[in-house]
Every structure is written in structure tokens, then in C-alpha cells.
Amino acid sequence: MASSSKPKRIYHVFLSFRGTDVRNNFLVHLYTALDMKGIYTYVDSEELRKGEKIGPALMKAIEESHMAVIIFSEDYASSSWCLEEVAKIMECKEERNLMVFPVFYKVEPREVRTPRERYREAMVKHESKFGENSDKVKRWKQALLDAGSLSGWHLQDG
């Protein structure tokens, strides 16, 4: 008898990224390379159906993936959507053994782990919006620390 609590894994890879930073350059190349290898990859612009609620669809796609690649870029932390994704990804890493691979695209890993520069500015803005002691912001900070502490790829150019 199959367990109904175990999620069905549909996607090989879920890509988490800040669209304005990487959608028309790095992401296109990564997605194309994965697709050419037959790797079924979730990218919101390709998989999100018109009329579908974005938040629940993204969270479900993370749950239905074997692995996640988080592309940390300069403005990643400015997006509450991205922060929700990284928090869900890290939750699924712990609870469902989701494999997680970070790519530090034009940012230092330490900036992600212990918010500095643009990541610190973004978190200050989120704190002013949601409250300094907001559970949501605390969850996001912990997710950034955890994901930023994983071994990954550090890309400065190209």
C-alpha cells in the first residue's frame, strides 16, 4: 500500500532565482543545458499556468522536486517571493531530503549567510515592513543562513 503522505516527485530540479537579475542571461543557459540533458526543470515562466495562484503553485512545485538549485544574486533577498521559496526549500531539505545546491551568482556566500551589503539592506526593509521580530523575517534569515552555509558554486562572471 502506497503512503499518501509522501509527495509525488514530478520535477527533477526546481530553480529558485530573482528574475530581474538572471532570467535573460545565466538562467536561460542553465535551463537550456538541463533541458538538453532531459532534466525536467521547474521554472516559473515555463511551468506556471495562467490563472494559477503563484504562491501555492511554487510551494507545491518545490515539494514535487527531487532537488533545488538556488541562484543567489544581488537582488535575491529583496524579493519576498524568493525568500519564501528559500525557506520552503530548506524546510523540504530537512523534512523530505530535498537535495539543495546553491549558486552564488555575483555575490559572496558570506553575504548570504550573514546578510551584508545588499542582503542586509533588503532584510532591513523586510523588517520595517513586517516587524523586526516577525516570525516570517526570522524564518527567512535562518533559511538564508542555512542555504548560504551549503557548499555550492561561486560565479563572478559569465
Rank of each mutant, 00 (worst) to 15 (best):
C82R: 08
S79R: 10
N133G: 14
R113S: 02
I70P: 06
I62C: 10
H126L: 05
Y76H: 09
R120Y: 09
L83M: 14
A68I: 06
S65N: 02
S65D: 01
E94L: 13
R113K: 14
V137Q: 11
E63Y: 03
V112Y: 07
K88N: 11
W140C: 10
R120I: 02
V103S: 02
M123E: 01
E108P: 00
D75Y: 14
A68D: 04
R118K: 15
F104N: 00
M59A: 14
E63L: 12
G148E: 06
S149Y: 08
E74F: 04
Y105C: 04
V69N: 05
C92D: 04
I71M: 03
E117R: 12
M99R: 10
K138M: 12
I89V: 15
E74Q: 10
A147Q: 05
H66I: 01
R110C: 11
E132C: 00
R110H: 12
G131N: 05
E74K: 15
F101H: 07
F72I: 07
H126F: 06
S78H: 04
D75L: 09
E127N: 00
E132K: 15
S134L: 11
Q142L: 14
W81T: 01
E74W: 03
A147F: 04
E111R: 00
S128T: 12
D146I: 01
F72G: 05
S128H: 12
F101T: 09
R139Q: 13
